[in-house]
């Protein structure tokens, strides 16, 4: 069962919007998971990356558009792949 309003809006939603939201959310969840498994806090990550904690907070709390460059920096620091591509 799905709300009729939700169903209607979902049917009108362009596929690319849904793909974007799912990918973006997967990335945010993946970063959070890696940080948790390594026991990293935002403050610790900020120190290691020589950034202000507020900047790291922006990256992880959705106040900053996660560009590929930002993701590469994070991936280098976290030491784990954030985005896996097929055949990569």
């Amino acid at each position: 069962m799905r709300s009729k309003v939700a169903k209607r809006i979902q049917d009108e939603t362009p596929e690319e919007v849904r793909i974007f939201v799912r990918h973006y959310t997967d990335i945010v969840v993946r970063i959070n998971d890696i940080m948790k498994s390594k026991g990293y806090t935002q403050k610790y990550l900020a120190e290691r990356m020589k950034k202000r904690p507020s900047e790291i907070n922006k990256w992880l709390k959705g106040n900053h558009n996660l560009t590929l460059k930002t993701l590469a920096k994070l991936e280098a620091e976290l030491g784990e792949p954030i985005i896996l591509t097929q055949g990569g």
């Binding site: 799905r2 939700a6 809006i9 979902q10 009108e12 939603t13 362009p14 919007v17 849904r18 974007f20 939201v21 799912r22 959310t25 997967d26 969840v29």
Partner: peptide, 15 residues
């Protein structure tokens, strides 16, 4: 549309 996808796809279906 983004929020609904976030609710139904990302929360409801994926995570």
């Amino acid at each position: 549309q983004e929020l609904l996808s976030f609710v139904l796809d990302s929360i409801g279906e994926d995570h």
